[in-house]
Simulated assay, not measured.
Amino acid sequence: MPKISPDRISFRATCLRALAYLLIIAALMEGVMQEAQQFVDVRFSESGFTELTQSFLLLLATGLALSVRVWQRQLPNVALLLVGLLGASFIREQDAWLDTYVFDGAWQTLVTLLVLPVLFVVIRHRRAFVAELESITGTFSFGLFAAGFLTTYAFSRLYGRSELWQAILGDHYLRIIKDAAEEVTELFGYTLLLFAMLELVLLVRRRLAAER
């Protein structure tokens, strides 16, 4: 009987994942709906459900990436770069709080202190990094990560441009509509990144089990 690759996911597992991820997305969007309807004073602000949830999702995703490197000791260079990217995004989401209660420009300083050492290590071990990356490019985790990355760092930025919404709404333009469009799209992107890290953890566990 041919050995099944640990990178493959069974049909049953795929359906269960799809259902779980759908329920999570539905729950998040219900939270957005409640924010829009009941929390008018803080909706789509730093204190609103959407932005707080973004930070929570990033924190979880960063912790999962860190677990792959530290506890499961797999994909050390790829996992380190993921920790740097997700951790920097988490710090960036705290910019208003850091600028107010620490010092102006604190988030830039913290991001620099995190990202520069990570890039140094990854570049130093670039051949191992490329080999690790090539080993996961065909996996579900990588596909989710690519979708989340493009949604968060490309599409949401372009979709949330003031010029676009001014052109769409004309004289009826309201800043809150632009903010809602950008922040909710960003929330979805961060959700995909969290799913990607969950799938990466599961992938590593399957690979470790297959080696035993």
Rank of each mutant, 00 (worst) to 15 (best):
T109R: 05
R127Q: 12
E132N: 05
H125I: 01
V118M: 05
F140T: 09
F120Y: 15
S141A: 15
W107Q: 02
W97D: 10
T100H: 11
S141Q: 00
I136Q: 02
V111F: 08
V130H: 10
F142A: 15
S135G: 08
T137S: 09
L114V: 12
L113M: 14
Q108L: 05
D99A: 05
V122M: 11
L98M: 14
G138V: 09
P117K: 10
V115R: 04
T109S: 08
F120M: 11
D99T: 04
T109A: 11
V111R: 09
L113F: 12
V121F: 06
P117Q: 09
I123E: 06
V122H: 12
L110Y: 13
P117F: 05
A106D: 05
H125N: 15
L116Q: 03
F142W: 15
V130G: 03
S141I: 01
L113R: 13
H125S: 10
L113Y: 13
F142N: 14
Y101F: 12
V115L: 14
F103S: 04
F142T: 07
F140E: 00
D99V: 02
D104N: 15
G105F: 04
E132D: 05
D104K: 15
L110P: 01
L133A: 12
R126C: 11
H125K: 13
V121S: 07
R127L: 10
E134V: 03
V111G: 07
I123W: 13
T139Y: 00
A131R: 11
S141M: 00
F120Q: 15
E134D: 10
V102F: 11
